[in-house]
Amino acid sequence: MPGYELVFIVQPEMEEEPLTALVEKVTQNVSDLKGQVNQVDPWGKRRLAYPIKKHLEGFYFLMQVELPASAVRGLEKSLKLMEDVIRYLIMRRDETGTK
């Protein structure tokens, strides 16, 4: 199973409780797709370089995920359906650095 890096941005008006629930939901989604989340790294609220859906800030989350290659599309689909996620990026871990 290749390792992936997942970054997603959540809209800033989120309270703390639904925020953890959302992270939980993403984790659940990954395990539903027969993968596993190895690490969650919340960057906290950051200012966006340009407005996305009229938001100027967002909560950033970085996740280290293991996922079967065929399940990446499924994860993308589920992230697209979450309205509180305003942007995401899934990358293979061996492509993130230079190498």
Partner: peptide, 11 residues
């Protein structure tokens, strides 16, 4: 370009 997509850097 990846950083721009995540609004870490401006276009």
């Amino acid at each position: 370009k990846r950083a721009r997509h995540l609004a870490l850097l401006p276009f």
